[in-house]
């Protein structure tokens, strides 16, 4: 056993009257009381009027972002839906008859993209797993709604809240690279 038993010093009679504890408590409380009342040293932040500065890397609400040309970046790969621990994300893939993607060479974008902000735990797994840099945890922390339905954010809302993020512009470079090559010797039907 590596436990070390520390002998406690027995309390003196004075200590056992509880007086030092009472006086100590009085001293501490009186100091803080005086500081708050007379010196105005309060730590309270008057929330709706005063707001804290959201630090970099804060994990707020996840929103979808658009690329530099305003196109939807999400390609509906559904990895975020898969990885989402509370199953807050629900993606409806475009399917064979879906609307063509905003970026022609990315081929695919979600028909619908829903995040249930009531289920979301702001863990950031979706952002981490996203291969397209299309979803980011942003700085919103105060998300309110009047009913459960209004807390399910759809694709349109997520895109409008998410803003723009250019990133590595994979699809743009791919297109440029393809266009720079001599036309391919097989005609596409």
């Amino acid at each position: 056993m590596s436990t070390k038993v520390v002998d406690r010093a027995p309390l003196t009679f004075y200590e056992r009257t509880y007086l030092p504890a009472i006086l100590g408590g009085l001293k501490v409380t009186a100091k803080h009381f005086a500081d708050t009342v007379f010196k105005g040293k309060s730590v309270t932040m008057q929330y709706p009027e005063e707001r804290w500065v959201v630090p970099e890397g804060y994990r707020g609400a996840p929103y979808l972002v658009k690329d530099q040309d305003g196109a939807t970046k999400c390609v509906s790969c559904q990895l975020c839906e898969f990885v989402c621990p509370p199953k807050a994300i629900r993606i409806t893939p475009p399917g064979p008859e879906g609307r063509p993607a905003d970026r022609a060479n990315a081929e695919k974008m979600p028909r619908e993209f829903e995040i249930n902000m009531l289920r979301c735990i702001f863990c950031g797994m979706c952002q981490e797993v996203c291969p397209e840099e299309a979803i980011f945890l942003q700085k919103d922390y105060s998300i309110t709604g009047e009913n459960r339905e209004s807390m399910i954010f759809n694709k349109e809302k997520l895109l409008s809240l998410g803003g723009t993020h250019a990133g590595i512009q994979k699809w743009k470079h791919k297109l440029e690279e393809a266009q720079a090559q001599e036309s391919f010797p097989v005609e596409t039907p």
């Binding site: 009381f33 708050t36 309060s42 309270t44």
Partner: peptide
Amino acid sequence: KVSAWIQDRV
């Protein structure tokens, strides 16, 4: 109020 003041709150 008193509790708040003792705890540096308002």
